[in-house]
Nucleic acid binder design. Structure first.
Lengths: 224, 224
DNA sequence: CCACAAACTGTCATGTGATGACATATGTCG
DNA sequence: CGACATATGTCATCACATGACAGTTTGTGG
C-alpha cells in the first residue's frame, strides 16, 4: 500500500510487445488478477491470502509481490482502469460545457459503461469490488487512498479544462474534491436499501443533480 | 484497522471514575498516546514500531493491542476528538443559519481551535498529524477510512439540522461529502507551497468560500 | 550456435502488525 | 480475608511485506 508499486503496468510501448518475455509477464499479471478476483468473490477480500492467489497461478508468493505492491493493489487495478477511462473521457468532452456538467456526464457515462461491461472487463468485477470494498476495512482504506492519489491528477485535468492553474487557484481543487464526494455519497446511498437507486450510475446522477441545485439553501423550516 | 476497536474510549460514566482500576487504565491509555506521538514526531509513523511504543510505557506489545485496535488507531484518537468536537459544535449553531454557512463557521472555528491548542491537547500534535499523514500512505489510508466512518454520523447531524431524513433524501449525504471534500482540498492546498495559506483554518475558509460561490460556472474562456 | 548479460523466479530469512489461548497478577467487593 | 472479575504477560501463530542470494530463462551479439 504505502510503498511504490513495481511499475508493472499494462506496458505501453509498440502495440506488438517486442519479446516473448513481455508477453509472458503480461499474461502472468492477468492470470493473477483473474485468480484474485475469483477468490475474492468466493471468500471475500480479507479471507483470501496472497499465498492462495499465488498458488492458483502456480507462482511463489514472493513473485506475487513482484507484480503487485500489495494485496490491495490487485483489487485496485480495477479502479485504476476506471479512473484512467474517466480521465480520458473527461478530456474529450466539448470544451464549452460548464465544468460540472461535463463532469457529471462523464462520470455517469463511465459508470454506466462499467455496469454494462463496455469497458473491457467483466461487469461482475464491478459488483465484486463494490461489495468487497464495503466489507473490508483494509480495502476500503486502500481504495480511498487510491482515490486520493487520483484526485491530484483529476485536479490537473479539471484545471486545464477550466482554464485555471491549480497551482494558484483553489477552484479546481474544490471541484475535483466535490466530484469525488458526490460519487462517494452515491455509493453510500446505493448501499442503503432505503433509497430507490438500483445502480451506481443512477445514484451518481442523482447526487450530481443535488450538487447542481446548490447546497446552501434549504434553511430549516420554511420551503425555500 | 479493519477489526473492531476494543472500545477503550475515554470512558463515559460518572465524572469520578469509580475505581482505581479505571484510573490506571485511563492513565495507561494516555501514556500510550503520549509516547506514540513523541515517537511519531521523532521518527515518523512508519518507522515507529508498536513494540517501541509499548516499551516506552513498559507494557507488552500484546497489551498495546488491548488498548488500540491498531497502530493507526493511536494516531487516529486525535481525529476522533476533533470530529467529536466538530459534531458538537455544529449541533450548537443557531438553527436558522443556512446549512453550508453553519458548517463553514463550525469547521473553521474548530480548526482554529486546534491550531491554537484550545481543544485540550498540544497543538504540536496537530502539526505532527498533518505531516505524518502526508508522509505515510498507511496512515493516510487509515485517516481517510476514519473520515469515511465519521461521514455517516455527520450525515445524520446534517440531516437533522436541515430537517431532512438522510434515509430517503440524498441531500444530507451530498452536503456531508462535500464538506469533507472542501476540507480535503484545503489540506492539499496547504501542503502545496504555491498557495499563500499558512494555516489549515485559513485554507479551509477559502475552500468554503469557493464552494459558496458555486462550482459549475466558470465556462472556459468567456467571463460567465 | 555459443557465450554473455539482463531479467525473472524461487527459496530462505527476517521484520512487523495483529490475534488467540492460557496462566498469572492485580484490583474489587462481599 | 477470600471469591470473583478483569488486566496483563507470555507464548504461539498467521499474514503481509521485503531483502538477499542463487538458479533459470530469455534476448543479444559475436
Amino acid at each position: 500500500m504505502t510503498a511504490t508499486a513495481p511499475e508493472a503496468h499494462p506496458a505501453e510501448p509498440g502495440s506488438p510487445p517486442p519479446g516473448r518475455r513481455e508477453r509472458k509477464k503480461l499474461q502472468t499479471r492477468e492470470s493473477l488478477i483473474d485468480a484474485a478476483f475469483r477468490l475474492f468473490a468466493e471468500k471475500g477480500f480479507d479471507a483470501t491470502t496472497v499465498e492462495e492467489i499465488a498458488d492458483a497461478v502456480d507462482i511463489s508468493s514472493r513473485t506475487f509481490f513482484r507484480y503487485f505492491a500489495s494485496k490491495e493493489d490487485v483489487a485496485l487495478t480495477f479502479q485504476e482502469e476506471q479512473s484512467r477511462a474517466l480521465m480520458a473521457a473527461l478530456a474529450a468532452r466539448p470544451p464549452d460545457e460548464p465544468i460540472m456538467t461535463a463532469i457529471r456526464r462523464t462520470v455517469v457515462g463511465i459508470t454506466r459503461a462499467c455496469e454494462n461491461g463496455e469497458l473491457g472487463f467483466d461487469p461482475q468485477r464491478f459488483e465484486c469490488m463494490l461489495s468487497m470494498t464495503s466489507d473490508s476495512g483494509a480495502l476500503m482504506a486502500g481504495s480511498l487512498e487510491h482515490a486520493q492519489r487520483k484526485h491530484r491528477e483529476m485536479t490537473q485535468v479539471i484545471g486545464a479544462r477550466m482554464g485555471l492553474d491549480p497551482a494558484t487557484d483553489l477552484r479546481p481543487h474544490v471541484v475535483a474534491a466535490t466530484v469525488m464526494a458526490a460519487f462517494r455519497a452515491a455509493s453510500e446511498a446505493l448501499a442503503d436499501p432505503n433509497f430507490p437507486y438500483t445502480t451506481l450510475s443512477e445514484a451518481a446522477d442523482a447526487a450530481f443533480a443535488v450538487l447542481e441545485e446548490g447546497l446552501n439553501l434549504p434553511a430549516p423550516q420554511n420551503g425555500r
